[in-house]
């Protein structure tokens, strides 16, 4: 978008030459070159000469020369400035492109204090939980693990027949009593009721 006008400018300059010195007067002021100013000077000088050697014309001629000199200065300074700006624009454009290519890395280069940390919010593994949350989770895990171990032991007791099952269907009962040692049978029954009592006591207390 910015490039084509430069070419147009050059083309118009070419056109100006083709149109002859008068063409310069038809140009847009922002597109005038020093060459155009000289062309204008030539045209005006020629026309002043045609007016003859009237002293008022001579006086006017000085003023016109001065104005043309001012115009020349403005145009040449303007074109220099335009050239400088164009160069600067190009280098900035390159810089922006380079920064864009480096992508998100550029943002983490922001300098921070030594006790600060930059977190990439797009990283699925970014730190996001607090110490207290981790503590709570660990505590709960430990509690559950302890309960699991107790339950596993209890299960093992039932499996090995140390504690007879609470309710056994008629068919299985015989088998279970065979597994359970008869000498322990009465004490086991007693234990079962204590456990039962405790169980009800505890569950009643909780609710």
């Amino acid at each position: 978008m910015e490039e084509p006008p430069v070419r147009e400018e050059e083309e118009e300059e070419g056109d100006g030459n083709d149109l002859g010195p008068e063409g310069a007067l038809g140009k847009s002021p922002s597109q005038l070159t020093t060459e155009d100013v000289y062309d204008i000077s030539y045209v005006m000088g020629r026309e002043l000469m045609a007016l003859g050697s009237d002293p008022r014309v001579t006086q006017l001629q000085f003023k016109i020369v001065r104005v043309l000199e001012m115009l020349e200065t403005l145009v040449s300074e303007g074109s220099l400035e335009a050239e400088e700006l164009r160069l600067e624009r190009d280098s900035l454009r390159k810089e922006v492109q380079a920064l864009r290519n480096r992508g998100p890395v550029a943002t983490s280069e922001v300098s921070l204090g030594s006790n600060k940390m930059v977190v990439d919010l797009t990283d699925p593994n970014r730190p996001r939980f607090t110490l207290q949350e981790l503590r709570d989770v660990l505590q709960e895990r430990n509690k559950l693990k302890a309960q699991l171990l107790v339950a596993q032991e209890e299960l093992q007791c039932y499996k090995s027949g140390l504690i007879p099952p609470r309710e056994t269907p008629g068919g299985r009962r015989e088998k279970d009593t065979l597994v359970t040692r008869t000498s322990n049978a009465s004490s086991n029954k007693e234990e079962k009721t204590i456990i039962k009592k405790l169980f009800f006591f505890r569950s009643g207390k909780q609710t």
Binding site: V150, E153, Q156, C157, S160, S187, N188, E191, I195
Partner: peptide
């Protein structure tokens, strides 16, 4: 032993 630790399987 078993009466002392009714809920425990043997060590």
């Amino acid at each position: 032993k078993s009466t002392l630790r009714p809920l425990r399987p043997p060590v």
